[in-house]
């Protein structure tokens, strides 16, 4: 589709957006490293990487506390935004996001069961969350499947399943109240205390998910023309939808297993991105990934510093921003 890309008048705007977005990402990284209960100046920061006799305290803060937390946040934001962008296209529903259609809840419940019942086996949290997410996706798909996965049924089934799984999670927190220290924060979505282990846990899923989504963009575009047109063009529609949904589940599950139930990133980021770069998934997908990372990094910096010395889970802050935006989209009539 080279011809189209070269001559499309939107490309200038996309290029500017790419520069601007990348710039924002670096600003976000720098501000995020500098801000916090221990202030870090630019010279301190540079010294960590250059000078041999760097201040050990600051080195520890940057390398072992802030950087892993920030980078994990970036990956999580990217994965959630990608997951939402894929689901919105596959389900042809602007309200689709992993939180709303039950995929996050499936991942969350599976991860919570492992955390509470098998606290020693934290390594199996991501695969367990993935199974939970895929399980939820499959349940929703088959409930809603009636000679073709009808969009409205799919979303309604997801909402119902979400509520059902959330009830299980609440029950677990009550029944095992002695073991839920971590899980309360986790249910709101937090980046507090994320280490390099979390980063390396999410990274492989992010790489697979990102490239999968970039390759899938072509198919998302064809699906956007409607099932009948896509089938007429020779696409195996049900298979394509199934694989893409699986990819969205993988992305959401990896994010949820690291930081918990962080809502709204998957919903609002693809929408904002669509307003800026348009609905062509070849651009929407990579830009959603970029803006997802930027948003979570900034939101987490704010969550850490706004009410210092208290720290809000970033998921709560995202809900504060995301819910009104969601309502705004509803009143505007989403395109």
């Amino acid at each position: 589709m080279k011809h189209g890309i070269q001559t499309d008048p939107e490309n200038g705007k996309r290029l500017v957006t790419a520069f601007f977005g990348t710039g924002l990402l670096f600003c976000g990284l720098l501000i995020s490293v500098a801000k916090g209960s221990v202030g870090v100046s630019l010279s301190d920061f540079l010294a960590v990487f250059t000078a041999a006799d760097a201040n050990q305290g600051i080195y520890q803060v940057i390398m072992n506390i802030r950087l892993p937390r920030i980078l994990t946040g970036g990956l999580v934001g990217m994965n959630m935004a990608l997951s939402g962008a894929i689901l919105q296209s596959v389900l042809k529903n602007p309200l689709a996001d992993p939180g709303i259609i039950g995929i996050s809840a499936g991942a969350g419940l599976a991860a919570m069961v492992v955390m509470i019942l098998f606290p020693a086996m934290s390594a199996i949290i991501p695969p367990a969350a993935f199974l939970g997410a895929v399980g939820a996706a499959l349940i929703i798909y088959f409930i809603a499947y009636n000679g073709g996965a009808h969009t409205l049924r799919l979303v309604l089934a997801g909402v119902a399943l979400s509520a059902f799984l959330a009830a299980f999670m609440s029950a677990l927190t009550v029944l095992f109240s002695d073991r839920v220290q971590g899980t309360v924060n986790w249910m709101a979505g937090t980046l507090h205390g994320k280490s390099w282990n979390h980063f390396y846990m999410v990274l492989p899923y992010s790489i697979v998910g990102f490239f999968g989504a970039v390759f899938g963009a072509k198919y998302l575009n064809i699906l956007a023309l409607g099932d009948d047109i896509a089938r007429g063009l020779g696409l195996q529609v049900e298979k394509a939808k199934f694989l893409l949904t699986l990819l969205a589940a993988l992305l959401a599950a990896s994010a949820v297993s690291a930081v918990g139930l962080m809502g709204f990133v998957g919903l609002i980021i693809p929408h904002i991105t669509r307003l800026i770069v348009g609905s062509d998934n070849r651009f929407l997908i990579p830009f959603s990934a970029l803006f997802g990372a930027v948003t979570v990094i900034f939101a987490d910096t704010a969550a850490r510093t706004l009410f210092s010395p208290y720290e809000l889970p970033v998921g709560i802050l995202m809900a504060f921003i995301g819910a009104p935006f969601f309502l705004y989209l509803l009143t505007r009539g989403i395109k």
Binding site: G4, I229, G234, G278
Partner: peptide, 30 residues
């Protein structure tokens, strides 16, 4: 599916495309 699609085109009733899709991109999907 692809062999059929090379011989047989079908346009359903009132198909819907994204409003910001350029004409040449829609045609290229063919």
């Amino acid at each position: 599916d692809k062999s059929i699609a090379k011989k047989l085109g079908i346009l359903p009733q009132s198909p819907i495309a994204p409003m910001d899709l350029p004409v040449h991109c829609l045609v290229a999907f063919g």
